[in-house]
């Protein structure tokens, strides 16, 4: 029984950590930029598959873990470029053409969902529909449990990045500018904040976090061209529960959704896995539509 509980706890914590990593990027783009990036899952997919390509290319000459790390570095660069293009070409482009933020927000949703489909098709054409599995950073399980050390590493990395993000937002000028811009875009601009550059940083940051989550998902479970869909949907549930734009709320909501899923599968009925998150989503929208923490990062005027 103790073993079952420990396995349950570790599965919950590990899984939730990956959810948090994915959802945070989704929420900061909305909190700061006021748009929903539906290509967020595509960043996760690009990150995982670029790492796979890098690993397969370099593992023969330098060993598995260095090749994996090198692949990851390349993947982060590729995802950063992808998100920079997303922002500069599409979001900025739309902002130049349309004056109303609601129009931009709607069109960004449409454009990003189309781009997500393009990425899926491209990955499908290149890699086919067969699932792939990424090499683990560290093999074996945590002694006395069935939870992999790789998932445990994902948990640690997730918390290091979350902590780093809090430090970045609270202690650095760019971070403070992010908060300022989320409160009032006009006010931030008046005090000299370069809004486009700030938003560019936000999009890149969000993409990088998603890519890292994708790499851990790909090495702990498996990866396909459609691997970005489920995390995107879960991110929706998480950010609505946590409060759109709230990083703290997203982290807590990620662990809550992860807990619900793990409890459902372990103690209720594994067949209900797909339902619980959406039930929560509906309940929150009805009972507390602003989520747990409302919007810490307010969209600027």
């Amino acid at each position: 029984m103790v073993e079952v509980l420990i396995n349950f706890l570790l599965n919950w914590l590990g899984r939730s950590a990956l959810y948090a990593l994915t959802a945070i990027g989704f929420t900061i783009i909305f909190g700061v930029g006021g748009v929903l990036n539906l290509a967020h899952g595509a960043s996760l997919t690009i990150g995982a598959f670029t790492t796979l390509v890098g690993f397969q290319r370099f593992s023969g000459s330098m060993g598995d873990v260095p090749a994996l790390l090198l692949g990851l570095v390349v993947a982060l660069v590729v995802v950063a470029v992808f998100n920079a293009i997303l922002y500069l070409l599409f979001v900025r482009g739309l902002e130049r053409v349309y004056a109303k933020p609601e129009q931009v927000a709607l069109l960004v949703m449409i454009v990003t969902v189309l781009l997500a489909l393009v990425v899926e098709e491209a990955v499908k054409l290149r890699f086919g529909e067969d699932p792939q599995v990424l090499e683990q950073f560290v093999g074996g399980t945590i002694p006395g449990t069935n939870v992999t050390q790789n998932l445990a590493l994902g948990f640690v990395v997730s918390w290091v990045l979350i902590a780093g993000l809090f430090v970045f937002i609270n202690r650095t000028k760019v971070g403070k500018a992010l908060v300022a811009a989320s409160m009032s875009r006009r006010g931030a601009r008046i005090v000299g904040v370069d809004i486009p550059r700030l938003f560019l940083v936000t999009w890149i940051l969000a993409g990088v976090l998603a890519a890292i989550a994708g790499v851990f998902i790909g090495s702990t479970y498996s990866m396909t061209y459609a691997m970005g869909r489920s995390p995107l949907v879960i991110s929706f549930a998480i950010v609505i529960l946590g409060g759109l734009g709230s990083i703290r709320g997203s982290v807590i909501a990620a662990y809550f959704i992860g807990l619900l899923e793990t409890v459902t599968v372990t103690f209720v009925d594994p067949n209900l896995l797909g339902i619980t998150s959406f039930l929560v989503l509906v309940l929150v929208l009805v009972v507390r539509p602003e989520g747990l923490y409302g919007r810490e990062l307010q969209v600027g005027a």
């Binding site: 479970y221 899923e261 594994p270 067949n271 896995l273």
Partner: peptide, 17 residues
């Protein structure tokens, strides 16, 4: 005997049983 959703990704909790 255990059945599960075909969308299951994380089998750790199922294997616990």
């Amino acid at each position: 005997t255990q059945s599960y959703s075909p969308t299951t990704e994380n089998f750790g909790p199922i294997y616990n049983d």
